[in-house]
Design a protein around this nucleic acid. Sequence first.
DNA 1: GGACTTCTGGATCGATTAGTATATATTAAA
DNA 2: TTTAATATATACTAATCGATCCAGAAGTCC
Lengths: 203, 203
Amino acid sequence: MPRTGRPRAFNRDQAVVAAMLLFWEHGFESTSLAQLRAAMGDISAASFYAAFESKEALFREVVDQYISTYGQVSESFRDTSMTAKAAIEDGLRRSARMQTESSHPLGCLIVLSASTCSPELKHIMELLSKEREKVRGWQQACIERAIAHGELPASTDIPMLVTLFDTFLRGISSQARDGVPIEAIDAAITMLMSVWDALSEKT
Amino acid sequence: MPRTGRPRAFNRDQAVVAAMLLFWEHGFESTSLAQLRAAMGDISAASFYAAFESKEALFREVVDQYISTYGQVSESFRDTSMTAKAAIEDGLRRSARMQTESSHPLGCLIVLSASTCSPELKHIMELLSKEREKVRGWQQACIERAIAHGELPASTDIPMLVTLFDTFLRGISSQARDGVPIEAIDAAITMLMSVWDALSEKT
DNA sequence: GGACTTCTGGATCGATTAGTATATATTAAA
DNA sequence: TTTAATATATACTAATCGATCCAGAAGTCC
């Protein structure tokens, strides 16, 4: 924090949020600096680069901002105060609800904002891929916990079950973008979770 | 077809295929004309615009090319020579297999190549959205057929079941991009299809 | 061999891209 | 009130974007 000097004329935190909404809607590469600066309070290029190192550095901040706010829905996956099944179900339902809310762009920023990009931006894709891998890891931990607690049989195919839930989870982004209503997704989650019960009966 | 004049120095069909692979890998907006021209046989800008109206027109051709080749996997959804369940299962398995093949970009071009884009390219997104809607419609027809034939109970929640399968289908693109092996996806499909049996038992 | 048609190489278009240089404005601390 | 620190506005950079223009090359047709 600077103790001296001319104070910043815009709110940095609000600017990051504004940038997040743009990156979320249009993706990293398709969001131009001009658009960003306009949305961040009509700031000049000089002001932008004085506050942020680069477009890429801003995006990294945006990803952190997203994860610590909207992305919190997937924290359900690592909530060990519920049963493993409830954690998976809650993570899916909360993700679906958040991604279909009309108060912000549809779908998930982590899944959508760099699903494809130029070769020279591969590291941006990998940055997001690592975040998705985290969420997948939480889901896997859920299933391993269920097996350890006897909620699922020891013979359960862990990669299979993780892939089942994680693939559905990622598909929600595409469905939300195409306007599929939360009711249909929520009902599909109920159906999807029924496979858990079918598996647990074999215990 | 021109009967006179200087013949084209490159193969137009091969050029479209080369363009398809680029758009598939990097998406519509992130693929530049320079990249396209280089991949299409190092053709000049003049040659490009003589053969194709614009980058967008080329993309439309590419989408057609994709649908009539790799995209044929989803034709299973409208194959009425199998049971409805088999059609859904086959469509999912063939999509998963195709999307994880290493001989071409991973995932589905229709899902990935314009999942986000600039505001002025919204019509490109809508073009692809319509194609996805077609596939969803085929899946819905499958389920309606199953109900009509008594394979599923009349009380089946159609939008729910369509959303279950279609959400998983779209999630495959993200999983494939992140390197999830076909074996895990294939096993997940087996599990996913078990909900069909659970439903049909209620008939 | 023209005449006609089409394609190609190369230069170029204006707009936009991310990012910078410089000079000035605005603050806190000495 | 000076000094140091920071932010600002304005102008600007080099590179790239998709797309166009024109002169000449390379064919077919009569």
